[in-house]
Every structure is written in structure tokens, then in C-alpha cells.
Design a protein around this nucleic acid. Structure first.
Lengths: 330, 330
DNA sequence: ATGAAAGCGCTAACAA
DNA sequence: TTGTTAGCGCTTTCAT
């Protein structure tokens, strides 16, 4: 494997001139440069990235850690990240491993200049530890404060509040909340919004009917089965995410319970499938693209020492489709 | 930023002993090791990956290049890759940039030990050039031969043949093929399968009714609109991918053309949405997970010098759902 | 415009 | 078991 040394030798110049020819073409005579480039081509020279990075002490790369990349959901996020990264000539690599050493490798070994984290597998502790070591991080859907870190999230609580309020205004009284895993911050925030809407509407706190799914379609089915079997059908269900709502919809259909006539349903996320099911799923849209864009933007500010907004919350929007009545005055 | 030198100094040992403590713990006395680890923790030492990689001349990392990561479609592929990589302690990074320099960086600058390519943006020429330079590659959905390269693909032609044959056996005669972009190998192969099925069935080659979409839902809609407007509705449509089939379905519904009674439809890929639309889309399933697994497996063989299967074709399977009649004898 | 030389942080002979 | 030493391939002063 040829090195820059071989190229220099073949071109009859010193190593430094060869290096110059690649990195600052204008600082080397045209003829010399041509000779060097020719030599490189002839030898099939491939620069060694590790040596380069070691020397300049930067990688010009940021990592995006996702624990799950199913759905165009994350695709949009990455799209946003990519656009902003491209604008500033940064490179993006995505990792979606669950192996701890693989994560460490990226975060702890200076293999990237910073990271965007959307991965519940990485504990808050680790995130703060990294930030302590001045590793710039954009954390999505976390509630963390640190001067080397920015937090970005959709307004989960506000979105849930709006959805619940809407259900209420559509005449549904008894609204069931299908939560996500107990330790999910997103789910907790969405529950809070739901709760607040109910309290606001009734003045006295009711006995919130809640079950915990696991954010999967199967989990949604399971919990819905239970509800149906117990014969205590609510007037509406607000699912903490669309995946579970998909499961709800399916079980409801199996039992010939009509949506939205017999029961209303709203999900959260606005995954692509939401618009294809029958009836199309009403849901709370998260601005994933914008989230990605902002995350990358703030991260770049962190990297360049520019002032950042340490905490960004982006608005969601309620998408009314077929699983709840569409009120004209809305 | 502390280096291994600082750690060594604080622990009162030489640099090499410190290095040993990290890389071959058993080769250093327990007490010494403990001191070194303590020092590292105290200093918040972070190994420098670039220096490490430069020295050992390997990255223990492979790149997966995707031009599009929407859909659980690619998620499954990556899942397969990851599982196999984990088994062999390799790291995986995913890149989904379209910027040429970003791609080069990964492929041409020794930043990874090998790559899995599923990205039509990278030309066959470049792929062969890389292989020439002994950069190990697993190429998906390409027709390439090289001793430093493995080709992996689903049996596009066979899958299309089976789907078309099925449509024929279900009684549809006039079957329209909605192709992908003209330069797409996948689309070409699928067309070939379709063509062969028709020829086999009729003995004399018919005038194949074909239109070219662009593999998107919007493209599917556009082409279907044309067909409908011209009033020359075929008995069935075989779409070169599910995205386009989604568009077909939608336009058909808008025109109150009933599927599968008025017209049959089969797609290709088995994206997740396929099972959620109404009626659920019949399609040809590609074993994405298996494809990813095999790609990574062969790549690892290439990397370790083990014998490889230079060309792997995995079977597809016809998934019968609601957009074509389900024949009992099938 | 070009070259000599130092050194980025690390690993691995080899020697002690 | 530990230390000495020589690079890995590259960029970048600083001379010339």
C-alpha cells in the first residue's frame, strides 16, 4: 500500500511538497502539482485517514447514535442532520449498534468530533460524563443541562395536551391513555400533557385510566385485548405512540368495534404508516427533519465555540385523520 | 486532553506498560495495572482512535453505504449486518450521504476495512476501482465480478417470474408492467422475469405493455393516472416495487376501480406498509435481513482471507394478500 | 516554490 | 514484569 512517501519519490519531490499538493494546491507550482497527482494516480495512492486525523487532531465527522432506525421516521431525522452537516462540510456517520464497546469506541476514542444522541441505551450518566470531558453532544429527548451539551426535543407534553383536549372537545369523556415503557421520558411527558388536559377540563383530577405498553404494535394489541376482554371499553384511546395505535386499531377491528364511531383513537409520532391504515390514524406529528436540522446546527455551534441555545423544544402538530371526528371549527 | 503519556507518568510507569495495561491486561502485574487504570480514570483519559488505528493499520470497522434509509426495509438489512458484525467483533457505521467527498473519505482513505454497498450513486466503475486496490466490498444488487468483491442480491428475476406466473394462473391475461427507472438493474431484472413468464405462457412474445416510473409512490400515481385517462386499463398491474404499487392503489381507489375484482396488482419488496393498506398489497418479499447477514459474512471472509462465495442470489417469496385472488391450490 | 525535520498518540518488538 | 526505542503516515513550521 503506497504512502505519500512513495508518491513524493516517484514525482521527484519531498514529502512536504507532495502533502502541499494535496492540501493546498495553490501553494505548489502547477507543473510540480501535476507530476505529483500523476504519481498518485499511477501508484493508486490512498491517503491514510487515521494518520491525517491524528495529525490535524480533528475528524470533521460527527456520529448519530440511533437505537432503532426503522421507519422513515428516523430517516427524516438523519436527512435533517445531513443537510446541515453538508452545509458546513462535516461528515456524518450513523451507528445503531447496541454493543457498549462499539458505542464507546465512537464516543470515547476521539473517532468523531461530536455526537447526536437518540438512543435510550446510553444512560444520562454517560452523556453527562462525556460532556464533562468536553465532548460536544446534541441530546434528543432528554432533560439534561450542561455547558457542553444541547438538548433538543419535540414538545411531547404540549402535543399530548392538544390531542387530549381535542378528544375532549369532540365529546369523548372517558379517555384511556396507553403509555409506553415506564422509564421512557417521552411517554412520561406525553402522559403529563394528557393528564393536564383532563384536569383542566374537569377541574378535579379523575382516576386516569392507564396501561403500559412497550411502544410496539404487539404491545398495543396486547393491552387492547385486555381492555376489550374486561369489557370496559373507554370512549377514546390516546396511544403514546403510533406503533401501539396500530395494534389498537387492529384488535378493535378484529372485535368489530368501529373507529371512530364506537371509540376514538389518536396516536403520537406520525409515522408514515399512519396515513395508510383504515381508517387513517389521527396523530401528533413530530417535526423529525427539523429536529435533526436543529440538533446538527447546535452541535456545530458547540464545535465552533459559537453561542448555542442549550434547550430547544419544537412544536408538534395535531394531524386529524379518520380515527377521530374532524371538527369543523378546529 | 491527556494522552497515554500522562497516564503513564501519573501511574509512575513507562508508556509501553500503560499501553500494555489497556491492550493486554494479563501481561502486566495486577497492582501496576490497577494504578494505571486509576490514573486513567483520574485524568479522564480517552484513547486516541486515530493514533491507535494508524499504528495497528486496521480500523476493525466496516461501512454500510445506503442512499436511502427510509422504511424498515433497510432497517432489516442493517440488522442482519449488525448481528454478523457483532459476532466477529467488527464495528459498523452507516453512511447515507450523497456528497462524493464524504463517500470517498470512507472508501478511499482507509477509514474502514471494508464496505457494504447498496447505493446506486456509487458507479460500478468506482466499485471495481476500489476492488482493484484491494479494498474488500460486498456489493448488493450489482452484477460485478472481481476477486476482492462479492455480489449479493435477491432473485429479482425469479421473483418477478413467479409473481407474473401467478397473475397469469389467476386468470389475468393482459398484465401491465410498471417499471422503475430505466437504469435500475433491479427493475431490469424484474422486467426480465415478467417477460419470461409471459413468453413461457403464450409461446409467442406479446407486445409488453410497460411504463417507467421512478420507484416512488408519486411516480406510481402519475403512471396510473395516464393509464386510466387513456382508458386502456389492463387486467392486472405488476409494479416493480411496492412504493409505486402504493401509488397505483391510491389512484385506482380514487377512480373507484376495485382491486382485485376490476384489476389485479402485485408489488415488489414487501415493505412494511404493504400489509396495512386496503386491500393489503400482494408482493414479492425480499429477504433483507438475510441479505445483510450474508453481505457481512462474505465481507468478513474477504477480510480474513477465507474462501468466499463470489456471487450469492437469495430467493424471494411471493406474499399473497388482498390485491390479487388467493388461489387455493397455490 | 520546495525541503528538512519534528511530532501527533499509540503499539510492539526487543532488551533488560 | 517493565522500559527503551522505532516507527505507523501524515501535516506543518521554519529554512532555504
Amino acid at each position: 500500500m503506497p504512502t505519500i512517501k512513495d508518491v513524493a519519490k516517484l514525482a521527484g519531490v519531498s514529502i512536504s511538497t507532495a502533502s502541499l499538493a494535496f492540501n493546498h494546491p495553490s501553494r505548489v507550482a502547477e507543473g510540480t502539482r501535476a507530476r505529483i497527482l500523476d504519481a498518485a494516480k499511477l501508484l493508486q495512492y490512498r491517503p491514510n485517514g487515521a494518520a491525517h486525523d491524528l495529525r490535524i487532531r480533528r475528524t470533521q465527522t460527527i456520529a448519530v447514535l440511533l437505537h432503532d432506525l426503522s421507519g422513515p421516521f428516523y430517516s427524516e431525522l438523519v436527512q435533517g442532520v445531513q443537510v446541515e452537516a453538508d452545509r458546513c462540510h462535516y461528515n456524518v456517520i450513523i451507528s445503531h449498534s447496541n454493543r457498549q464497546d462499539s458505542i464507546n469506541r465512537l464516543l470515547y476514542e476521539n473517532r468523531v468530533d461530536g455526537a447526536i444522541l437518540l438512543d435510550p441505551n446510553v444512560s444520562d450518566e454517560i452523556v453527562l460524563d462525556l460532556a464533562d470531558q468536553r465532548f460536544p453532544i446534541a441530546a434528543l429527548d432528554r432533560d439534561l443541562t450542561h455547558d457542553c451539551l444541547v438538548s433538543i426535543a419535540a414538545d411531547h407534553e404540549g402535543g399530548a395536551y392538544e390531542a387530549t383536549r381535542y378528544l375532549l372537545s369532540a365529546g369523548y369523556q372517558n379517555i384511556f391513555f396507553l403509555a409506553g415503557p415506564k422509564n421512557s421520558l417521552d411517554s412520561q411527558l406525553r402522559f403529563r400533557g394528557y393528564q393536564r388536559a383532563l384536569i383542566d377540563a374537569r377541574l378535579s383530577p379523575p382516576d386516569f385510566p392507564v396501561a403500559h405498553g412497550d411502544f410496539t404494535e404487539a404491545g398495543g394489541m396486547r393491552e387492547t385485548e385486555k381492555i376489550v376482554r374486561q369489557g370496559r371499553l373507554p370512549e377514546a384511546i390516546f396511544a403514546a405512540n403510533d406503533e401501539m395505535a396500530l395494534g389498537v386499531l387492529q384488535v378493535l377491528r378484529e372485535h368489530q368495534i368501529e373507529v371512530p364511531n364506537d371509540i376514538g383513537l389518536i396516536g403520537f409520532d406520525d409515522i408514515r404508516i399512519a396515513q395508510y391504515v383504515t381508517p387513517p390514524l389521527s396523530t401528533v406529528h413530530q417535526p423529525m427533519y427539523e429536529l435533526g436540522l436543529q440538533a446538527m446546527h447546535q452541535l456545530l455551534c458547540l464545535l465552533s465555540g459559537d453561542p448555542v441555545q442549550p434547550r430547544i423544544v419544537l412544536s408538534t402538530s395535531l394531524i386529524l385523520r379518520g380515527t377521530c371526528p374532524v371538527l369543523s371549527e378546529h
